[in-house]
Amino acid sequence: MRRLNVPAIVLGLLLLGAWELAARAGQNSFFPPFSTVLAALWANGGVIAAQIVDTLRRAAIGLAIAVAVMVPFGALIGRVRFLGDIFEPLVNMLRPIPPPAVAPIALLFAGTGDAGKIAMIVYTCAFPILIGAIDGVRANHPMLTNVGRSLRLSRLEIMAFIDLPAAMPIIMTGIRLAVAAALLVSVIAEMLLTTNGIGVYLLRSQENFRIADGLAGVVAIAVVGFLVNDLFLRLDRRLLAWHYATTGGAEGQG
């Protein structure tokens, strides 16, 4: 099905080989060779997996809340001009605040437990999803609504069966941006509001000078992040197969 990508494999092996050789030549305990990191990954696999599950759990909850609230909210703002006039300037005002900057305030309100971290994730995910939803429903062709009217669908039915599916491609792009952001902020949140999760694992590895163990955690995050993004890309392709079939499989990059 898929051709083996030889150049990528060669480059990957070369880079890993260079790392291994440089580390072995340097003999610096702060710079362990790749093989040591792999061994550390093997040895700490259970701990790392348990921590990543915590990280992913919070990212998933935060993302789910953001999707459940922001998709309908965005559709409403995008559709009802009066609400758009009120809320869009506020959205544009809050959007440039970098997500980690809300950490101290999340800490004040929600403490260092799950609630504070999930609040940060929801805040981060809210903007790409909200903007995707607003732009999505606005980009709809008016003809679609007219077709719905001639089929005697009610306003609510038009929203549910026509507006939402038609806006889905743009909304999904927003959600995919949010997925990457959720994972990112989940790790940041753990490092700032330390209790558990892979972010804490990394901090502890640093504090105890266990460099190889820490790097093993980084490798694990890279793998998980890749898999999660890939999963959502596949989900996107499957859910929106009808859309890509008509547009020729546009490839969106987040």
Binding site: L183, L184, I188, I198, Q206, L215, G217, V218, I221, A222
Partner: peptide
């Protein structure tokens, strides 16, 4: 997808 923050401690 690797969060840059994850790289900071090391």
């Amino acid at each position: 997808p690797l969060p840059p923050a994850a790289l900071v401690p090391l």
